[in-house]
Amino acid sequence: MDRALLNTHAKLVARDIHRLTQSPTEANSFILGGHACISRVETVGTIVSRDMTPKFLKFGVDDGTGCVTCLLWLNQLTSSYFSRFDPSTVLLLASTARKQAAEIRIGAVARVRGRVGSYRGAMQISATVVVVERDPNAEILHWLECVRLGRSCFRIKSQIS
Rank of each mutant, 00 (worst) to 15 (best):
G107I: 08
L5D: 13
S158N: 12
F85C: 13
W143V: 09
T69N: 09
T8C: 09
E103F: 02
C67I: 12
Y119I: 15
R50I: 06
T43V: 13
A10E: 08
E145V: 07
K157M: 09
S29K: 03
G33P: 00
R40E: 13
L32I: 12
L72W: 01
A102V: 04
S158E: 11
H9A: 12
V90F: 01
A36I: 06
G66Q: 07
G34Y: 03
R134F: 06
T89A: 13
A14H: 01
S29G: 08
L72Q: 03
T65Q: 03
V130E: 06
A14D: 03
P54V: 11
Q22N: 14
G150I: 14
P136F: 05
L149V: 13
P87Q: 11
A14S: 10
R3N: 10
E42G: 03
L144H: 07
R134M: 10
S118L: 06
V132D: 04
S118P: 01
A27Q: 12
A122E: 08
F82Q: 05
D51R: 15
S118T: 10
G114C: 06
P136S: 09
R148I: 11
G117K: 08
A36D: 04
L149K: 09
R15A: 10
H142T: 08
A108S: 12
E145P: 00
C37V: 14
L57F: 04
G60H: 05
G60V: 10
S39M: 07
H142M: 08
T25F: 10
D86Y: 02
A102Y: 02
I47E: 04
V90D: 04
S161M: 13
N137S: 09
G121H: 04
A127H: 00
